[in-house]
Design a protein around this nucleic acid. Structure first.
Length: 363
DNA sequence: CCCAGAGACCGCCAAC
DNA sequence: CAGTTGGCGGTCTCTG
């Protein structure tokens, strides 16, 4: 067991930092709950983003505390037997959350089985005193279990949305959205969508300009709205009761062909217009955007696992010329096909960090 | 990197 | 009446 404590700056008189002139009104208090099995990515992302805000000139001051027991708690990176991964040490007691302006419940893998009673109590009390409640991924299960989502809309990771809806029939589960802002209760799909929700909350607090600056500060992608679908997580939706799934499966089997949107629409027994519209509404992407992603993913596999020429990989992935292939590959993967292949080959060899520029076509 | 033609996208609107 | 569908056409994006 390697329990690496995440120490942090003492919380005492931190107010006297002359570099940034935050507003003199007391910082907005944010309590982030960390118990055993906390999803480290979500915990780290929210703390990092909110603390980054203070680095901006006139950036909002968030007083962020990780609340929990005074000893290391296992993160989701650790195996049940404690073999690998790392732990974190909460820096404030759970009671500190009782006075926080915002209480955040990151996902905990154990929440599927049970929610610790003290966490459920905290959630309930937070709602009763009117403070802001936020949950990521499996954290939504804790909110639901605490009974604060009755009749509300919420989201969770797509893998668990059906389970959530089954357990809580009165809850409107928006399974395909990145995050949901339902007044004082906010839920996100988890993982990267947690970042989107945090930026959304900062935008509500301090405006779009500040939120954009923070996104820039943490090198986050351009902001996504909550309505955007989680689609890129999975290539084809598990089930959808309409023709979209059939069309997508069909397209994946015929990637090498010259597919047009009208062909996909025909597979779905819809007009092109309606297919595009439904596709966009459900997945937040256009059919061609999705198809390009699938084609590039396929091409990457071929580059990794075959010695085919670039031209052949392009052809088998549905790109009619190597030039078009290269264009989209660079746009999406941010490197050239040839370079990508060499990087991948270089794995395990000594030449790790050296990059050569200026490759082209079939080597 | 540029260009022109083809194809895709999407707001609009009438029909259901 | 509210929601869905599909054609039209202006504009954007992709292709070669």
């Amino acid at each position: 067991v390697t329990a690496t404590g995440c120490s942090r700056s003492a919380e005492g008189p931190t107010a006297s930092r002359p570099e940034f002139r935050g507003r003199t009104t007391g910082g907005h208090r944010v309590a982030v709950v960390a118990a055993d099995t906390v999803v480290s990515f979500e915990l780290g992302a929210v703390v990092h983003v909110l603390q980054s805000a203070a680095l901006l000139p006139d950036g909002p001051r968030y007083d962020v505390g990780v609340v929990g027991p005074p000893h290391p708690v296992a993160t989701s990176t650790m195996q049940p037997d404690g073999g690998r991964g790392f732990a974190v040490v909460p820096d404030r007691p759970l009671e500190w959350a009782a006075t926080a302006d915002t209480v955040i419940i990151p996902g905990h893998t154990s929440f599927l089985a049970e929610v610790p009673p003290e966490v459920a109590v905290l959630i309930k009390e937070t709602q009763e005193r009117g403070a802001r409640l936020v949950a990521f991924g499996l954290g939504t299960f804790a909110l639901a279990a605490a009974g604060v989502l009755e009749g509300r809309s919420a989201t969770t990771h797509w893998r668990w949305s059906a389970e959530l809806a089954a357990r809580h029939p009165s809850l409107v589960v928006l399974g395909d959205t990145l995050f949901v802002d339902d007044g004082s209760v906010h839920t996100a799909a988890g993982a990267a969508a947690a970042l989107d929700l945090i930026l959304h909350l900062v935008e509500k607090d301090r405006g779009a300009v500040v939120a954009a600056s923070i996104a820039n500060q943490v090198v986050a992608p351009p902001r996504r709205s909550g309505r955007e679908a989680q689609h890129l997580q999975h290539e084809v939706p598990p089930d959808d009761h309409d023709g979209l799934r059939n069309a997508m499966l069909w397209a994946e089997e015929h990637l090498a062909q010259n597919l047009q949107v009208a062909d996909l629409a025909a597979q779905a027994h819809m007009s092109t217009r309606n297919f595009s519209r439904r596709f966009r509404r459900r997945f937040g992407a256009t059919p061609i955007e999705w198809l390009l992603q699938v084609r590039i993913r396929h091409a990457r596999r071929l580059l990794e696992t075959t010695t085919w020429t670039i031209e052949r990989v392009a052809d088998r992935s549905g790109f009619r010329t190597p030039g078009v292939f290269r264009h989209h590959f660079v746009r999406i993967v941010d490197t050239t096909p040839g370079h990508y292949r060499r990087e991948h080959r270089a794995k395990g060899r000594a030449s790790s960090g050296i990059r050569t520029r200026g490759d082209s076509g079939p080597a």
